[in-house]
Each structure stands twice: as structure tokens, then as C-alpha cells.
Write a protein that binds this DNA or RNA. Structure first.
Lengths: 339, 339
DNA sequence: CGACATTATGACACCGGTGTCAGGGTTGGA
DNA sequence: TCCAACCCTGACACCGGTGTCATAATGTCG
């Protein structure tokens, strides 16, 4: 037998029509049990597999989801944010559990990214994942909605469509971190991250953090903030610049673990002890966090649940079901960097 | 316009036949330049995208590769080996660079994994990635070859088909590690990992390591070996058991970084100082390695190059070109755990 | 025994492109 | 003027399935 077997080949050998083969293989109740058995046997013998292209073409759906992973173009190319890798893992698993395949694609945040996986019928829906400047995205989101493209995104909120977003309760997470530092009476706190509308997730973390301090009658000093994107390098440099400017603090909240790790490096280098001189709290609970020196206290995001919710919500959207906004509860992981 | 536009819609609005639309969009030289321009305009207006299912069905190829990631079933489910995640990243990028999409799928090593992505025409070829018990795989490999399925795999060697494998020079890497420890005169060395034919990569690392010692007239003590799979937990327990058995050593070579990190934890717990009492060397250079305490000396595998070679070689196989066996050179990264 | 429901199957159009072939129109050389 | 060459286009079969419709065979009941 040259080439791959088709349903016609099976039909020939099983002595039935091709239609019957198709029905038999999909367990249609219309087919006689004996016939079905015969068809299955022949199919197995010929190592037959349904041609997904033909099947998808006819049914107009692909049983495939696409994952677009946005990378901060300013970040080091070779390293991918471990938090998103963890998400990728859980999304992959969630897809498999639902019988869907997953197409993975990396996108640069700057370039005008293409979301044509759905237009071209390669995927039934799209998952958008990544930090990045979501201000620019709203226009893109609108056009996706207009074209009736099914998608969900992590973190970034889509104007007027809370149902398209799954995210961690970043605000609540920020409060958790603040409450923890306040319990240890570390009131003189620095913040490293981007607390602007360009990074809605970081912004929410900062807001929660600030509000918790405010509720304790403490106003954060704006001079003790430094901008950073979510890389170790960036966190390192931001913290260095604070130190270089003689800014003092006895605790530090980083908008992400990578930033926190870079901050710890800068602190150590300057002879500042963690946690004795400065308590450090990060966000994400990436795998590395427990191996740093000292181990990093951090606000955990449940990536397993997050992946599941993204996939579940997307499938609901595809099926036309109603979806609620999904906010996942964060939890505080206390380690050596703050005790 | 309800539903998505097809080439017939474009043909209608552009006043040409559907055949011409198809040709025009694929930049066939047969089409008049003016006609082409008109077609492109209409296509853009209708936000037309070629239906991949139809296209793939007709051309019998998918411009898609599938990545099967094997996980050690005994490992913690929620954590994925960071080394493979790094590989996943570089493979994704390499695919994109070649204009291919990537389907990602996790497989359990134990279950009889399905490689039907190619049979079902969802992918043109398959990349196999993962540690694991490759002895069981040889039969599967044979059947893949027999069915003329295009695939390459990382690490594991396929009987008589070196061209289907891309791997790091694990043997050479082991020698690098050994030479490094010998330079510091740390001759009393323990090995943590699985040095059996079940883990060909670990086995090769151990062989190179042992041979280098032998060439210096030193025979490794088999009692100072402990089995471990590539997880932190496993490395921790293996090392603990060595310590519990009162086995002494002044250096330790771990078959992977995760094992090394677990080993360091066990050593610290037992009051053994790294690197003063024991020099530790790992393998992989995962991202975590530079953040451990002390930072981990390790043998680096070039994941970027590895991903590229896997994709390049697979595409060559698909195109029917000849492929050479690909061995990537490792390099030693010296950090605090061994100086 | 005839009317009718039930079961199992085959024939066929269809999904949306791609590739082949035939043919119309124009140009150029003899 | 006629034929060949060239350029461009349309008609149509085809990829390998799925879904609908028609129909043959069998069973059921009055």
C-alpha cells in the first residue's frame, strides 16, 4: 500500500460503502454492530487515521486552540519568562484534557501581531498570554470582537468585555504582600515595577499594595519607586539606581519574582542584607523562587487553575455559552526573604 | 457578510474567476499585475484568509510540526522540567522562523503514546523530546520508521538511524565536569543520577565522567553512586541516602541541575558545606542554576542551537534530504558551587 | 396480507481551496 | 493574411472526509 490509507480503502476491504465506514468509525448508532467491528478491524490493519484536514474542512471546526505568547521585546531573547512557561504547561494539559490540540506561537509585543489562526480555520479560538503594553491592544481587541473571533486573554482587561479575561486578583495580591510587610513593621517600603496603565497587572498589584498601606495610615513615598519590566536584569538595574540615589527603605515589593531576584542581587552587591536590612516580597511564585538565597517570599498565582480557566472559558465562548469574569485568588508564600 | 469570506466571494467582487483569485493570492506569475492588485484589495477588504484546512487537504501538507514532550510519570505533575521548557521555547522560535506552526502535546512516558499527528495529516513531522526510559521506545521508533513517519528526537538514539537524533555531547560534557573537579583535586567523587541504559543521556554523562577520572588513574567507587530521576526531590532523597549510609566524598557530579539542586539541599541539611566540604557540578544550565546558593557550576547545553537543529533536521527529513547525526558541544559554566 | 415503522446502507452533494487543461485574445513573423 | 507563440483566464476534477436523502430489507400490527 503506497501512501496513507483512506476511508475508501477501508470501504473496499470491508466490503461496504465509504459512507458506512465514516459512520462506523464515528460510532454512529445507524451502523450495524457487526459491520462496525469489521470496519474497525480493517482500519486498524491498515493503520488508518482520519484525515484531520478533510474532516475539519467539512465540519468547519478544528478541535484546536491557538496560544499566542507575547514577549516583551526589550527582554532578553533567549530567556522566556518562567511564569508564562508554567502557564503554557497548564494550558497544554487543560487542552489535552478537553480533547483539543494546541498551537503555540510566540509574538513580539511591538510588531502588529497576527491572530489569523482562527480566520484561517487552523484554530477554533485563541488564548492571549503575556505581560506587555496592553494599551495598544484595545484596538486590536475591538477588531477581534468585531470579526467574531473567539478569544480569551490573561491579565489584560478588554474594554466592556470582562468575560474575555481571566486573571489573578492582582489587587488583592498586592494587599496580601503589604499586610505581610506591615505585620513585621517594615513600613518604609520601596516598589520596583511599572505602576502605569501600560502594565495593568503591575498597576493593580501596586494599587492594592498602596491601599493596604493607606488603610494603615501610611502613604508610600513616590520617590521610592523604580520602573522595571519583568526581567531579572531590569529589576537589578532599577534597584541599583534607587541605591545609587541614596534612597533608604527597609522593605521592598517587586511586581514580579524575576524583578525581586534582580533586586536581591543589587541589594547584596551593595552590602545590604536580605532579610535583615530589607524584607523582599515578589509576585508569581515561579519555580526559581524557592531556590534563591534567601528563598523568596512571594504572592502565588495558581497557574494550574489559571490554565484550566482560560481553556474552559474559551471553549464556552466557542460553544456560545455565557462566561463570567474570572478572578483567581492569590495566596502568600512566606519564605526566608521576609522573616 | 455572514460567515467568513471565501475565494468565491473575492472572485465575485473582483469580477474574476475563483481560480484566478487563488493564483493571484499565491503570487503566481500567470496572473496579470492589475488583476492581482484588484484581488488583493478585495481580499483585504473582506479580511479574507486562506482556509488552511482546504489548502492542506489539497496540497497534502500542513506546514505544521508536532512536538511531543515526554514527562517522567513519577515526577511531580505540576512542575515541568525547566530544561525542556527552554527547549520548547527555542523550538517554537525555530519553527516560526521557518514558517511552520507548532502543535504542542504532553505525553506520559508510561502510556503508549500516540504519534498520530502525522498520520492524521495534522503535522508534517514530529519532534520527540524528553528524558525517560527510551529502551521501551525502540519498538515504537521502528514502527514509526516503517510507516515512513518523519520524526527526530532529542537525546535518545534510534537504532541504526543516527540521523534521527539531535543531542548534546553528553559524554564530552561528563569529561568536562570531571576535568574541572580534578583540577581542584576533588578526587573523591559521588555521582547522582541513573547510569543505566534506561537513561542513555545520563549514562553517557557518567561514562565520560568516569573515563576522564580513569585517564587520571582514578577509579570511581560504585558505592558512591545513587539513582535519581531528573527532579529536585529525587536528587534530594538520593543524596540523603548516601549521607545516611555514611558515605564520604568531597565532590559530587549530578546528572542534571535539578538533581544537583536537590543534592545541595540535602548536603546543607546535613551540615555539609558547599563548596567547602563538597564541590557540586550539575548538567543543563537551567535558568535556576545561577540563582541557587551557592550558584551552581554546571555543564551547559545550548538549547537555542538544539531547537534549531531539531527543526532544521526534521525539515530536511521531510524534504527528503540527507541529514547527519548532530552532536552539540557542551560548555562548562563555573560558578560558586565548585570554587 | 397490506400499511407502516424501523434498520441499515449506498449515492451524492458539499466543504474551500489547488492544479491541469483548454481556449480566447493579442502580438509577431513569414 | 495566416499561423505560431505568448499571455491570461475560466472550467473542472480533485483532495478525503461529513451529512442528507433515497431506498432496500426486515419487522410489526391490525
Amino acid at each position: 500500500m503506497k501512501g496513507k490509507a483512506t476511508s475508501f480503502d477501508i470501504a473496499h476491504y470491508a466490503g461496504v460503502s465509504q459512507s458506512t465506514v465514516s459512520r462506523a468509525l464515528r460510532n454512529s448508532p445507524l451502523v450495524n454492530e457487526e459491520t462496525r467491528k469489521r470496519v474497525f478491524e480493517v482500519a486498524k490493519q491498515l493503520n488508518y487515521k482520519v484525515d484531520k484536514n478533510a474532516s475539519n474542512l467539512r465540519t468547519q471546526q478544528s478541535s484546536t486552540l491557538a496560544l499566542l505568547l507575547f514577549e516583551d521585546p526589550t527582554a532578553d531573547e533567549s530567556q522566556i519568562n518562567p511564569f508564562f512557561l508554567a502557564m503554557l504547561g497548564s494550558i497544554t494539559r487543560a487542552c489535552a484534557a478537553q480533547g483539543y490540540d494546541l498551537l503555540v506561537s510566540f509574538q513580539s509585543t511591538s510588531a502588529d501581531w497576527q491572530a489569523d489562526y482562527e480566520d484561517s480555520h487552523r484554530a477554533d479560538g485563541i488564548i492571549l498570554l503575556g505581560y506587555g503594553d496592553y494599551v495598544d491592544y484595545q484596538a486590536k481587541f475591538s477588531s477581534l470582537i468585531e470579526q467574531n473571533t473567539k478569544f480569551v486573554c490573561w491579565g489584560a482587561s478588554v474594554d466592556n468585555r470582562p468575560d474575555l479575561t481571566v486573571s489573578c486578583d492582582n489587587y488583592g495580591g498586592g494587599k496580601l504582600a503589604a499586610a505581610h510587610l506591615l505585620r513585621a513593621n517594615r513600613k518604609d517600603c520601596a516598589f520596583i515595577g511599572d505602576a502605569s496603565e501600560h502594565s495593568p497587572e503591575f498597576f493593580a498589584r501596586y494599587q492594592g499594595f498602596k491601599d493596604e498601606f493607606n488603610q494603615h495610615g501610611i502613604t508610600l513615598n513616590e520617590r521610592k519607586m523604580a520602573n522595571a519590566i519583568s526581567t531579572e536584569e531590569s529589576g537589578y538595574h532599577a534597584t541599583r539606581s534607587l541605591i545609587a540615589n541614596n534612597i533608604h527603605f527597609n522593605s521592598l515589593f517587586a511586581a514580579s519574582d524575576l524583578i525581586a531576584i534582580g533586586a536581591i542581587r543589587a541589594l547584596k552587591e551593595a552590602g545590604i542584607k536580605v532579610p535583615d536590612d530589607v524584607h523582599v516580597v515578589g509576585f508569581d511564585n515561579i519555580a526559581v523562587a524557592s531556590f534563591t538565597n534567601p528563598p523568596l517570599t512571594t504572592v502565588q498565582q495558581d497557574t494550574t487553575l489559571a490554565g484550566q480557566m482560560l481553556v474552559d472559558n474559551l471553549l464556552k465562548l466557542i460553544r456560545g455559552e455565557v462566561v463570567e469574569n474570572t478572578l483567581l485568588p492569590p495566596s502568600l508564600i512566606i519564605r526566608g526573604s521576609s522573616v
